[in-house]
Design a protein around this nucleic acid. Structure first.
Length: 861
RNA sequence: GCCCGGGUGGCGGAAUGGCAGACGCAACGGACUUAAAAUCCGUUGACCGCAAGGUCGUGAGGGUUCGAGUCCCUCCCCGGGUACCA
């Protein structure tokens, strides 16, 4: 359906080429190939009811450009797309309307697929996966069996993050400042029997292997912080008059001589045993109050220290001193041993607690004068214990008569000496701790993978056989959470009943489901072999395609998805099921795209639909008050969300793609500006008119006449720059260079055909529809997707003459044309011969001449 | 508080230690048009000057260098992450 119309009209050409790519299966990856492989992956989306957002296609466009470019360079490219479709919104919609989540999900996926296809991305759609498809989650359940058999999945009664509003428990990673990550509902601690995954067993490897990944340092650092490795010592404190021993974890064993009291977490198992009768009622009351506090309360109250004395006294192992034992919720059961030695002189939390309860403060560390000055304190105040000094210094008052003397040592040396002493007397030992906790892996939801687990009537827990998978979700009518912490699946009637096929014993199926992260933990593996119904993936395909060479997605998954997927991958590696220790060799995070927003003089946000432009200024439509424009995260409430469908309808998919890439660096946060889309649309129109005449045929300006040296240089510079920029993902500057090409070539009366065809190839990865159409109109058949990528001649990128700046004392004085390869001596001679330069030097003596070939001459006088 | 990013024209942004502001948007002037849109040509960091030209200028202040947006130190502001983690 080639139109003879000479106008650049995206609605004519974009659907045409999308159909062509689909019908000719142009982007199918080859499972067996002599070509080098490249696996480029986007973080697959959750198909929400709101549809695609301009943020999604940003990363998708970037990866699509890389894929199209690399195919032209001869790579066998795997570029798949799928749906992370289990999740709460579809289930909440089901609760409200009774619509089954699978129906909502299918509808949303269809919409997402339509929107994504309208952007012309070169996905291999034959590999599409959907985490809610039983043919997919069968293998998610299968991986769970592998985890269980390896001892990495277990049931535990643990205090969990219970979110009453959502009716489910949440992982630590899903709780932000005491509220649910999704929806911002309050979360409380509550003990419940839950499935856990032993991610802590992999903490060290998850930390170590970060070093070799080509990820942004920021994301790696966030994972390191989340894993939170620290080293120190476990130290035993004998409780006076009891056989009990309280073990503490400290990163500062050097400060043992400064310990003036101890604190147990309120939930610590020894609290009841050590509490004296006199203190028992106070301790009980405090424990009860602490239990009721949500994490949010604990976080908010973090400056106000509370606590109760237990009545117990413990013996400091280094100086045999008796110190009181307290309980306080500033010590948490989940980290270290749930008990601390308090060194108020050198720990700000302990200092605050000691001040509140008037406990002794003993300094055992003297900072250098310089360090103290830098912090605005004096060493004498530190030594007197009137200010807290958590930093470095020299040990004082730290010796006993049993062979330990660390006075005069630095912190590092004192730590080492103390640990050696403790170990020799079996009073303690070096220890390592991680903040990372085991992963809470069950949810009380309907719309998730059922666990392939049965609770037998005799109390045993058995796993389904692999042949019994998939265990499909039962059909139910009522999706409401029970509110008791039981899953909606508890209402699934017959589905719950299980009879063992061999023994005939009966049991009840697990009613919890897996969290949304489960399906996304391994989808990149399914893409290598998406329709295999015998195996999750064939080993030879995994060996060929893995690892993912480039993974692009939002930074919001920095710790959640990316840490979980790495964990599963390492388990699969240990089981011999995958060939690489890491799944994602290179990770790039695209920056958020912000919407244009407005605020009034008071700083209050004004929804975009209440703002209008009057005399070049933005005012509130009703009040006429001036409002200020600023970029903010797109949100329904601000009505500043840009819908890709609208942009494509008005400007076309190529303009949309080009604009998103032209806005700025991929990783930067950037504000959307629709005027900018018009700019790139104009560029495409100019490129079109450079090639196509008004009647729709190739313009007669296109000739076989060789380009002049200026244009030839621009051609070769453009090939070089676009190639380098696509390799480094600097799409914005690649587009600039293509604009420079068009600006130069449109001005020429005669345009060399070969040069123009090279330009079309360079444009193809970025704006594929217009490139295909131009390529066809230039007389080629079969599409541009696998045309060889152009190469450049370095010699032709050089100018015959360059303008050399001559500076005198760093001030520009003259610009002189010279040969680019002029030697420094020649440059100096020419520069000193220039009259303006001689004037500037006047009769001063030339002290030094700096010559940078091809750049400048700086004369120092 | 701590850990990462980042501060460059009216705006988005560009710049291996070597002429700051490429490319685009917006604005202004001009051509074409009965007119407008579209398109094309030109101007556009600030200040001084009739001009030639000059002075200032990459968040602030210091430093290194013949030369700093770029490297080093101190500080301020913005964005993100994280936080009684002992």
């Amino acid at each position: 359906m080639t139109t003879t119309n000479g106008k650049y009209n995206p609605p004519d050409i974009e659907p045409k080429w999308q159909r062509f790519w689909h019908e000719h299966n142009v982007f199918a990856a080859e499972d067996v190939s002599d070509k080098p492989k490249l696996y480029v992956l986007d973080m697959f989306p959750y198909p929400s009811g709101a549809g695609l957002h301009v943020g999604h296609p940003e990363g998708y466009t970037a990866t699509d450009i890389v894929c199209r470019y690399k195919r032209m360079c001869g790579y066998n490219v795997l570029h798949p797309m799928g749906w992370d479709a289990f999740g709460l919104p579809a289930e909440q919609y089901a609760v409200e309307t009774g619509t089954h989540p699978s129906i909502t999900t299918r509808k949303n996926i269809d919409n997402f697929r339509r929107q994504i296809k309208a952007l012309g991305f070169s996905y291999d759609w034959s590999r599409e996966v959907n985490t809610t498809d039983p043919g997919y989650y069968r293998w998610t359940q299968w991986i769970f069996l592998q985890l269980y058999r390896k001892g990495l999945a277990y049931l535990d009664e643990v205090p969990v993050n219970w979110c009453p509003a959502l009716g489910t428990v949440l992982a630590n990673e899903e709780v932000i400042e005491g509220r649910s990550e999704r929806g911002g509902h309050p979360v409380v601690r509550r003990p419940m029997k839950q499935w856990m995954l032993r991610i802590t067993e992999y903490a060290e490897r998850l930390l170590q292997d970060l070093d070799d990944l080509d990820w942004s340092e920021g994301i790696k650092e966030m994972q390191r912080n989340w894993i939170g490795k620290s080293t120190g010592a476990n130290v035993d404190f004998q409780v006076l008059g009891l056989s009990a021993v309280i073990q503490v974890y400290t990163t500062r064993p050097d400060t043992l001589f400064g310990a003036t009291y101890m604190v147990l977490a309120p939930e610590h198992p020894l609290v009841d045993a050590v509490t004296s009768d006199a203190q028992r009622s106070a301790v009980e009351a405090y424990k009860e109050a602490a239990e009721k506090k949500s994490d949010m309360d604990r976080a908010e109250l973090n400056t106000e220290k509370t606590g109760v004395f237990t009545g117990a006294t413990a013996i400091n192992p280094v100086n045999r001193e008796a110190i009181p034992v307290w309980i306080s919720d500033y010590v948490m059961m989940g980290y270290g041993t749930g008990a601390i030695m308090a060194v108020p002189a050198h720990d700000s939390r302990d200092f605050a607690f000691a001040c509140t309860f008037d406990l002794p403060i003993r300094a055992i560390l003297e900072p250098s004068t310089a360090d103290a000055d830098a912090e605005g304190v004096t060493a004498s105040d530190v030594v007197a214990g009137t200010v807290c000094w958590p930093g470095d210094g020299t040990l004082i008052h730290s010796a006993n008569d049993d062979g330990l003397d660390i006075n005069g040592l630095s912190v590092a040396a004192a730590k080492h000496a103390t640990i050696t002493w403790l170990e020799a007397r079996e009073l303690g030992a070096a220890a390592t701790n991680y903040k990372l906790r085991d992963w809470l892996f069950s949810r009380q939801r309907y719309w998730g993978e059922p666990f392939p687990v049965v609770h037998m009537d005799n109390g045993d827990i058995i796993l389904l056989d692999e042949t019994e998978l998939p265990l499909e979700l039962p059909e139910i009518d009522d999706f409401k959470p029970t509110g008791t912490g039981e899953s909606p699946l508890a209402k699934a009637g017959d589905w719950l009943a299980y009879t063992h096929p061999v023994t005939g014993e009966t049991g009840r199926r697990e009613t919890h489901t897996m969290p949304q992260w489960a399906g996304s933990c391994w989808y990149y593996l399914r893409f290598v072999d998406p329709v295999n119904d015998q195996q999750a993936w064939a080993p030879e395909k995994e060996r060929y395609w893995m690892p993912v060479d480039l993974y692009v997605g939002g930074a919001e998954h920095a710790v959640l998805h990316l840490l979980y997927a790495r964990f599963w991958h390492k388990v699969l590696y240990d089981l011999g099921l995958v060939s690489t220790t890491e799944p994602f060799a290179r990770l790039v995070n695209q920056g958020m795209i912000l919407g244009i927003s407005f605020k009034d003089a008071t700083g209050a946000l004004v929804p975009t639909d209440q703002v209008e432009e009057r005399d070049g200024a933005f005012v509130h439509r009703d009040t006429g008050a001036a409002v200020a424009e600023f970029p903010a995260k797109m949100s329904k409430s601000l009505r500043n969300v840009v819908n890709p469908d609208d942009v494509i309808a008005e400007y076309g998919a190529d303009s949309f793609r080009l604009y998103e890439m032209f806005m700025g660096p991929l990783e930067a946060v950037k504000p959307w500006n629709t005027k900018g889309v018009e700019g790139v649309r104009r560029f495409l129109q100019r490129a079109w008119r450079m090639i196509i005449a008004a009647d729709g045929t190739v313009t007669s300006d296109l000739t076989e006449q060789p380009p002049d040296t200026g244009l030839l240089r621009i051609l070769h510079v453009t090939i070089r720059k676009v190639t380098a920029d696509l390799d480094s993902l600097n799409f914005n500057t690649a587009i600039s260079q293509l604009m420079i090409f068009v600006n130069a070539f449109t001005k020429a009366d005669s345009r060399n055909r070969e040069a123009i065809e090279i330009f079309v190839k360079l444009l193809a990865p970025l704006a594929p529809h217009i490139a295909e159409e131009l390529w066809q109109r230039l007389g080629h058949t079969g599409g541009i997707s696998y045309e060889p990528w152009p190469t450049y001649d370095e010699a032709l990128t050089r100018e015959t003459e360059v303008e050399i700046l001559v500076q005198v004392r760093g001030k520009p004085k003259a610009r002189i044309l010279m040969a680019p390869d002029a030697t420094p001596e020649e440059m100096e001679r020419i520069a000193l011969g220039e009259e303006k330069v001689r004037e500037a030097i006047a009769d001063c003596a030339v002290r030094k001449v700096v010559c940078v070939p091809g750049r400048l001459v700086n004369i120092v006088i």
